[in-house]
């Protein structure tokens, strides 16, 4: 399978390390094998060089000429409605959830644990009921857990 995402002008990347961790920006130019010039006028990332190791390539790409100024990048960004596209993506959703989970306090973590327990019990009960119905309708049934 050929590669589909490349380090190229206009490629939107997700920053995974450094002070702008968790934000997206767009590649403007390749400086060398390891570093690129990035700009994120609509996401709070200033135009700067960034190591490729600290960014992940996303499926999004915006169109602006190679070495375009911040103004051109912003125009292309708004035209593509990138902020909205990013928020709607599964990646952004997962990232937000991860952040939310990391910021939970002790009591909230405890409540989450309890909620998951309740949900899992309901789920197994439904599953077991279905299992009994389809595979052993008249025989002994698999016991269901107490909800």
């Amino acid at each position: 399978m050929p590669f589909k995402r490349f380090v190229e002008t206009g490629r939107v990347v997700y920053v995974v390390d450094g002070p702008y961790k968790g934000k997206i920006c767009s590649i403007v130019d390749c400086i060398d094998q390891k570093t690129v010039l990035v700009d994120g006028p609509e996401s709070g990332v200033p135009r700067s060089k960034m190591r490729i190791a600290q960014i992940h390539l996303t499926k999004f790409k915006i169109n602006f000429p190679y070495n375009g100024s911040t103004r051109t990048v912003r125009q292309a960004w708004i035209k593509a409605d990138l902020n909205k596209l990013w928020i709607q993506s599964r990646w952004a959703e997962k990232a937000a959830n991860r952040e939310k989970r990391a910021s939970l306090g002790d009591f909230e973590r405890f409540k989450l644990k309890r909620a998951r327990k309740v949900r899992n019990k309901i789920r197994t009960n439904v599953y077991k009921a279905l299992f009994n119905k389809t595979y052993c309708p008249k025989k002994k049934t698999v016991k269901t857990a107490k909800a």
Binding site: A102, S103, L104, G105, F107, F110, K111, R114
Partner: peptide, 27 residues
């Protein structure tokens, strides 16, 4: 407001599970 959870919370013990590191956690 979370009275029931609070009673259970205080009567339960604290513990760490997989991939939980106290220095990365919020309390």
């Amino acid at each position: 407001k979370d009275k029931k959870s609070f009673f259970l919370y205080l009567s339960s013990m604290f513990g760490l599970r997989n991939n939980q590191y106290p220095h990365r956690m919020q309390f």
